[in-house]
């Protein structure tokens, strides 16, 4: 795999970073270990679990399936950019807490980023639609029920 270096400039959570990266460096590793934004988690590195999901130019993508070098000139949002600080959570984060939508919390950042875009596209989803939208993210702890409830609650609060 390519070890050639590439210069990139990428905007992550509104902040610009310029870095030299190896061609083969995964976006997930770049975010976690180069930019020290470790909130994006890695569960499989083969595109199935969804834990590594970030928002790339407004669309959810799996950061383990992209190279850092592909992000030059693009805009990325990660879980660290969802809320200003721990005391002012995004409505999705707040609803996840209120409904006990997380246990170990390892899958949670990927689910938050996936659901953020989903609710922007579909502000008033029913349970079946939420389950469908969630089905690309694996959670081994919660059995999903409280996550579904949290997304419903967040949608309701965000519509107000």
């Amino acid at each position: 795999m390519s070890t050639q270096m590439h210069a990139i400039t990428v905007t992550v959570n509104g902040k610009q970073y310029s870095r030299q990266v190896e061609g083969r460096l995964l976006l997930s590793d770049f975010l976690r270990h180069d930019l020290l934004l470790a909130g994006t988690h890695v569960g499989c590195e083969h595109g199935v679990c969804g834990a590594c999901t970030v928002i790339f130019d407004g669309a959810p993508v799996r950061s383990c399936l992209m190279f850092a070098a592909q992000t030059d000139g693009h805009r990325i949002e990660t879980v660290e950019g969802l809320a200003a600080d721990r005391d002012h959570l995004h409505p999705l984060q707040q609803a996840m807490r209120d409904c006990h939508g997380l246990q170990c919390g390892y899958c949670t950042p990927g689910i938050l980023m996936t659901m953020k875009v989903f609710l922007e596209d579909n502000p008033n989803p029913d349970e079946a639609q939420i389950r469908e939208a969630l089905s690309g993210n694996l959670c081994r702890c919660t059995g999903y029920q409280h996550i579904v409830e949290a997304v419903q609650l967040a949608a309701e609060r965000m519509r107000k």
Partner: peptide, 23 residues
């Protein structure tokens, strides 16, 4: 009582430390 969890704000904001986060 069905109390909300103390640990959640850290986990929800991507600030909880997992082993691979140790650099």
């Amino acid at each position: 009582a069905p109390i909300r969890r103390n640990e959640d704000p850290r986990l929800l904001s991507g600030q909880a430390l997992f082993v691979d986060d140790v650099e």
